[in-house]
Simulated assay, not measured.
Amino acid sequence: MAIKKQYLKSKPVCKVTFSVPAEEAKSVVVLGSFNEWNEKKATKLKKLKNGTFKATVDLEKDNSYEFRYLVDGKSYINDDQADAYAWNDFAGAENSVINL
C-alpha cells in the first residue's frame, strides 16, 4: 500500500493518492472522516492492469483524517504507510490516520 501527498501552492489543498495492491479484489473504496464514512460518498479506487487499485482525493491541508479501505464491500483494511493509527470504539479497531 502507498500514500502519496502532493501539496498545491495555489490552494490550501493536498492531492492524496491512495494505492492498494489487491489483485484478487473486485472493488476497493476508501472511507474516512473526509467523506463522513458514507459508502455512497466513498471514493472508488480504479483497478490498474497490474492489480493495484488507485485514486486521488483533494483534501484540505493542515488537517488530520482517519480512513480505512473497504475491499469487496466486506473487509476493512488499514494502510501500512499511514502517518498514525487511531482507536475507534465504534468499529472496535484502529483506523489509519493521514496528517496533512
Rank of each mutant, 00 (worst) to 15 (best):
K26V: 08
E94Q: 14
A86M: 13
V13C: 03
L48V: 08
K4F: 07
K9A: 11
D80V: 13
I77E: 04
K4E: 13
T56K: 04
K40H: 08
Y7D: 08
K4L: 10
S75V: 14
G92E: 03
A2R: 11
R68S: 12
A42T: 07
K26A: 12
A86Q: 14
A22T: 02
Q6P: 02
V71A: 08
V29F: 00
Y7F: 15
A55L: 04
F18H: 00
E60K: 10
K11T: 09
S27R: 14
E66K: 15
V13Q: 07
Y76F: 14
L100E: 00
V30G: 00
V57R: 09
K9Y: 09
D80F: 05
N99C: 15
L8Y: 13
N88I: 01
D72T: 10
N78P: 02
K5N: 04
V30D: 03
F53W: 09
I77F: 05
N78I: 08
K47H: 10
A25P: 03
K41E: 11
K61D: 14
G92W: 06
L31T: 00
E36C: 03
R68Q: 12
I98Q: 01
Q81N: 14
G32Q: 05
N95S: 08
A42N: 05
A55S: 09
N63R: 09
Y65A: 02
F18K: 00
P12D: 14
F34V: 01
K41A: 14
Y7L: 15
D58R: 04
K44W: 01
N95F: 04
M1G: 08
N99G: 10
A2E: 12
V20L: 06
K47W: 04
A82G: 09
G51T: 11
M1T: 11
K4R: 12
K9S: 14
L8T: 13
K74E: 13
L8A: 10
Y69S: 02
L45G: 03
F34W: 03
K49R: 10
T43H: 05
K11A: 11
K41R: 13
A42I: 06
V13F: 09
S75W: 08
I98H: 00
F53C: 05
D80Y: 07
V71D: 04
K44N: 12
S96L: 01
